[in-house]
Computed example of a mutant assay.
Amino acid sequence: MKIVKTINEVRKQVKEWKSLGQSVGMVPTMGYLHEGHKSLMDCARKENDKVVVSIFVNPMQFGPTEDLAEYPRDLEHDAEICESAGVDLIFHPEPEEMYADDFCSFVDMDTLTEGLCGRTRPVHFRGVCTVVTKLFNIVTPDRAYFGQKDGQQLAVIRRMVRDLNMDIQIVGCPIVREEDGLAKSSRNTYLSPEERKAALILNQAVRLGAEMAETEKDAAKVVLAMKEKIQSEPLARIDYVEAVDALSMQPVERLTGGCMLAMAVYIGKTRLIDNVLV
């Protein structure tokens, strides 16, 4: 496994692979990897000849009051996980390698990014779309792998690839959870023991919503029950709980067809997300 820091090194290696007719899968990450990321790598390993993982804490998707400086980083640990998953190449650039001092070109999107996380994190998805486009241009993968935990991000990337005619297959992979149900997240490390226990309310609310949706199709009633469940936890503060179409991210009144029950909840100062497809 190689670890490279420059765009030229990545391009040279990928061109060599493709000249031999080998397919390339990519897993874009911000590092501090866990079993959720590894599940994406495992899927990429099964479906491609070569696997590239990018590890880049993208400053463009953090707002001025968000946790860019505190975001956890551990390249040695990340490399061990990648090695165990059979990854061939880690792309670990510095910010100045990705963004010139006079950088001024962005990829943005309407509609899908206006609600849910986009409502309270207005710069986030412009940063995501821009960096993912750059990574796709650099690596030119045949397939790219994203987790369903970031359900809105997955929908945004799929729409961007479709709208901009990118020749890449986007593969969504299931949420990976701890044994007690908490969705795996790099931000879980911020939680104190008391907060970690309180964070289980997210999964409890998700499971409640999924169970209700089997018979109750009024989205408002299901969302209200989920909110009441979360509010029963004193350490929890709701950012949003919504029912949306899983492809368009637009609010729905009836839970018919492909819908997503999505939430963002603060446990103490830590913002966590979870969702379920119904």
Rank of each mutant, 00 (worst) to 15 (best):
I7T: 14
V14H: 00
K15N: 13
K15S: 14
E16D: 12
P28K: 00
K38T: 15
K38H: 02
K46A: 14
N48L: 04
D49F: 01
V51W: 01
V52H: 00
S54Q: 04
I55A: 02
N58P: 04
P59H: 04
M60P: 00
T65R: 11
E66N: 10
A69I: 11
E70C: 06
P72D: 12
D78R: 08
A79F: 10
G86Y: 08
D88E: 09
L89I: 08
L89G: 04
I90R: 00
F91V: 07
E94S: 13
Y99P: 05
M109V: 06
L112V: 09
E114R: 14
L116R: 05
C117A: 14
G118Q: 06
T120I: 15
R121M: 10
R121G: 05
C129T: 14
K134Y: 07
N137Q: 15
I138E: 00
V139G: 00
Y145H: 02
D150N: 09
Q153Y: 09
Q153V: 08
A155S: 14
A155P: 08
R159D: 10
N165G: 08
N165F: 15
I170F: 07
C173V: 10
C173S: 12
K184N: 08
R187L: 11
R187W: 08
E195G: 11
K197P: 01
A198N: 06
I201Q: 01
L202H: 04
Q204E: 15
E211A: 15
M212Q: 11
M212S: 05
E216R: 07
V223W: 03
A225H: 02
E228M: 10
A236Q: 00
D239E: 14
D239L: 09
D239A: 12
A243Y: 03
S248K: 14
G258W: 09
C259L: 05
L261N: 04
A264E: 05
Y266G: 01
Y266K: 13
K269W: 02
D274F: 13
N275F: 11
N275C: 12
V276I: 14
